[in-house]
Simulated scan of single mutants.
Amino acid sequence: MAARVEQLVTSGTFSLDGGTWDVDNNVWIVGDDSEAIVVDAAHDADAIVAALGGRALRAVVCTHAHDDHVNAAPALAAATGAPVLLHPDDLPLWKLTHPDRLPDGELSDGQTLSVAGTELTVLHTPGHAPGAVSLYAPALGTVFTGDTLFAGGPGATGRSFSHFPTIIDSIRDRLLSLPPETVVRTGHGESTTIGAEAPALDEWVKRGH
């Protein structure tokens, strides 16, 4: 059976630099009826376990280590036995949320993850966070961008560990080079496509988020 993409929305808070905000997060489940990976274990491990429905979880993949994207990762790993994978450049952020529990493995640019016969390629896309990654699944015509690219523009870069010129470079060089019909599945909000976002790049640069 071919892999499919399922979306679960969980709610909680995001805290950084002394502020806290209410957020809804997209949790993406990629797999078939027997196995899956989870992209961003946000807020509610029990809800994610329920959505998995007994499937073997191969990995908990973190697009970056802001607390709203990783706060349920250790509990999900404990419940399923799956390893938590994170790009090492985001360890300082991870340790703000989980000081006593390191990730189980590292993500690196160009690395390939396989689930249900489908390959996802890790693209290092820093800017929103130093170790931010996107996951490109050409067979599914989709890319999971975390908080790097949204419908309508780049992720926020106004807080610690973020950098606007870097996120623009990541989007231009790593994401907008993908086929225009590629579906962009984001960390929050609605999905979009590469083709829908590409024409606005120069405008984002002018606005200088």
Results as ranks from 00 to 15, higher is better:
M1H: 14
E6S: 09
E6G: 03
T10M: 05
T10K: 03
G12N: 05
S15M: 04
D17G: 00
D17P: 00
G19C: 02
V27N: 02
V27T: 10
I29N: 01
G31Q: 04
G31D: 05
V38R: 13
V38N: 08
A41R: 08
A41I: 09
A42L: 07
H43G: 08
D44K: 09
A45I: 07
A47V: 05
V49I: 10
G53M: 04
G54V: 11
A56Q: 15
A59R: 07
V61F: 12
V61R: 11
H66R: 14
V70T: 12
P74K: 01
A75E: 00
A75R: 01
L76H: 01
A77F: 03
A78C: 00
A78N: 01
A78T: 00
T80S: 09
A82M: 04
D89R: 15
D89V: 14
P92L: 07
W94V: 14
K95E: 14
L96R: 15
H98S: 06
P99I: 12
S108D: 04
Q111S: 11
T112Q: 14
S114P: 09
S114F: 12
V115Y: 04
G117A: 13
T118F: 11
G127Y: 06
G127L: 08
G131Y: 08
A132S: 15
S134D: 01
L135T: 06
L135W: 07
A137E: 02
P138S: 07
A139N: 02
L140Q: 01
G141V: 05
T142Y: 02
V143G: 04
T145H: 09
D147K: 02
L149A: 04
F150C: 05
G155H: 09
R159G: 03
R159F: 12
F161A: 12
S162Y: 04
S162V: 03
F164R: 02
F164C: 00
F164P: 00
P165R: 10
I167R: 03
I168Y: 03
D169H: 12
R172G: 06
R174W: 10
L175M: 11
S177I: 15
S177Q: 15
L178C: 09
E181M: 03
E181K: 02
T182V: 12
T186C: 11
G189Y: 11
T192Y: 00
T193Q: 10
I194T: 05
A200E: 01
E203Q: 12
